[in-house]
Design a protein around this nucleic acid. Structure first.
Lengths: 180, 180
DNA sequence: GCTAGATAGTCTCACGTGCAACTATTTTGG
DNA sequence: CCAAAATAGTTGCACGTGAGACTATCTAGC
């Protein structure tokens, strides 16, 4: 995180949210997509310390671990890919790496031999148990600037946007698709 | 946005924010860093249609245009890099491309011949004037799920986190430097 | 006023990742 | 049943980008 706090005068637009936006310009600092991008990148790099430096995982690998750790039963790479909205080739590579490191294992699915059931090894589970409290702690640090109520607000607002972007699978959808 | 709403059962964790998080697991769907990442990626790809498909710009190029368009006076690549939190080499490449396309121009700074003053050409300004209303419209569409008050809330919450991340950085840096 | 260090910008390199082709398997429809 | 389409997962390819070396220029300290 070699973030140089800028030394030249970056004229930050004051957080005067109520003043109307000038008609003929776009203030990047008030532009939500830009802010989300920047914030996500910043937060990611703050977390990277935990799983990268301390455990040698990259983001895709961590997503695999996190998904398998959260669920108790084994699941397919496809499932992880869809849960985490990560491209299947990226997941595939992460899975290969994690298997070499003996953090996850996979077994053939007799019912459908195209797919594999993935699960954490004992070693992988141990890693997960060690790692996720550290990440939650980081999350706490990042959100420490917000009150409990503000956190709820944030969560609710993110939830609304996610829902409107169809990022969330409702349980009805899940049930509907569970044809078998 | 060829978003395939997934066909397998993704058990979404219900948005029950008040219930305590189980002690021994981490729900990726409630983990703010993950949500920010996913949301930012999704929003970006929703916007990409505008500047990419319609105008052939990528994100770094758009950031250069947006920064120069918002400000009236010329500024350096370094400034843009710091404003947008984009690596200087990325900005450098975007600047090169944009100059070839005659969208921006640069003049030597007599006072400091290491840096160049960048500004939009007439063509670039026209592009900006055409592009940013489309992007604001997209932003509006994305945030249409929120009331006016909720948007203000969101903006304020993002602002707080942004501010606190800056503070965290500087204090960390300060700590590191001061070898206490 | 010279040397050492800082700074602006460019360029090379390595790497991660999305895309799309490919294999293997399963499902569907005639 | 068989052929065609769909699906799970892997891999080669291309490309964007961050890290860091490098050049040129400026600034600071002695």
């Amino acid at each position: 995180m070699a973030r140089t706090s800028s030394d030249i005068a970056v004229k930050a637009s004051e957080a005067d949210e109520s003043s109307p936006r000038p008609k003929s310009r776009l203030d990047l600092f008030k532009f939500v997509p830009f802010r989300l991008n920047r914030l996500a990148a910043e937060v990611s790099s703050a977390l990277a310390v935990e799983y990268q430096e301390r455990h040698g995982l990259d983001i895709p690998a961590w997503r695999v671990i996190a998904t398998l750790g959260f669920r108790n039963d084994a699941c397919s790479a496809q499932y992880i890919s869809q849960c985490t909205r990560t491209h299947k080739s990226t997941i595939s590579r992460a899975v290969t790496t994690l298997m070499h490191e003996d953090l996850i294992e996979r077994v053939e699915n007799e019912a459908d031999r195209r797919e594999f059931r993935l699960q954490l090894t004992k070693k992988g589970r141990a890693l997960y148990e060690e790692l996720f409290p550290q990440l939650l702690r980081r999350e706490d640090e990042i959100l420490a600037c917000l009150s409990a109520q503000e956190r709820k607000q944030l969560s609710a607002l993110l939830g609304k946007i996610e829902a409107s972007l169809d990022l969330i699978q409702t349980s009805e959808e899940a049930d509907a698709k569970q044809a078998y």
